[in-house]
Amino acid sequence: MSAMLELKNVSAGYGTFQALFDVTLSVNAGEAVAVIGPNGAGKTTLLRAISKLINVKSGDIAFEGRSLATVEPHRIIELGLSQVPEHRRLFPRLTVEENLRMGAYMEAARPKFAQRLEMVYALFPRMKERRHQMAGTMSGGEQQMCAIGRALMSGPKLLLLDEPSAGLAPVIVQSIFDLMRKIRAEGYTVMIVEQNVRQVLKVVDRAYLLEVGRIKASGSAAELLASDEIQKAYVGL
């Protein structure tokens, strides 16, 4: 069985600054995988490289066996790869529903707009209440729901989440991780980048530990949660 998403020896960065070194990882269909690590480890760069917001310097990224090297950035989503970016990045002066419509911008998604809108509203009833509200005026947690909803509107095969809990109040963080479980239950394949190690390891099947741009450890969520290294450095207590 070949992996859905496969990164082989990927190096990437900004200008002369290199943020990723020889990263190799994979995500299989139906899995939830986390990439954990401290601030500045290169986690966001990793997702930006997968979505082609930045170019890789060497190595290859393949999705369903097809290399992404020649795919234009705005066509990535058409392959079934949808990303919820860091800091949510909603369009603040569009309404919730318009933000969701932007999620269904690609041709293939347009005919299914109404159907998927219902699906997202069923998943996040709060979004239905707020559908005519400007996205920028909502709370952080609500914005996160909207951002996830927007990413789901394209009907992705793989959902990439960049620090979904960042910048949110502790109470909200809990509910965001509950949301993650809900999305998993819907059958999506998910790749999450997170700093909140303890929480995220309870949600995912497997995880990779990224430090200073390199994969330092990998294994099942349970193994990593039990390892001394992770316990000391990230879980605390």
Partner: peptide, 23 residues
């Protein structure tokens, strides 16, 4: 329209337009 919404959206966040499939 989708195109019209994208036109309004682009000035609000240029950087993520490719993520929603807009060039």
């Amino acid at each position: 329209t989708y195109l019209g919404t994208a036109i309004r959206a682009i000035s609000q966040d240029r950087g993520i337009m490719p993520l929603v499939g807009v060039s």
